[in-house]
Amino acid sequence: MIECALCRKMFDPKSIEAQGACQGCSLIGTGCGRVRCPYCGYENQRPLKDARERFKKLWRGFGHAAPHGDQ
């Protein structure tokens, strides 16, 4: 769970709602590292550990760019 920087509500960046906010964005799969708060719409930064996981996946050669919050 992360705290939204604008409204301070807690949400799970891996939840379907947060992912749903990223669907349709032209940056999806490019690793922009942001996730939208489902309550107020503010974009928050994903934790850096998610960047490390993403980098590992890229390094292992996953060709398909998975959506944010991939399980």
Binding site: L6, A21, G24, C25, S26, L27, C32, R34, R36, C40, G41, Y42, E43
Partner: peptide, 20 residues
């Protein structure tokens, strides 16, 4: 202000956030 402030982060995401 939400999408406009977001625009100072990334205009692409802010454009999508105009949905709010």
């Amino acid at each position: 202000v939400i999408p406009l402030i977001l625009g100072f982060g990334c205009d692409t995401t802010a454009t999508m956030v105009t949905r709010v």
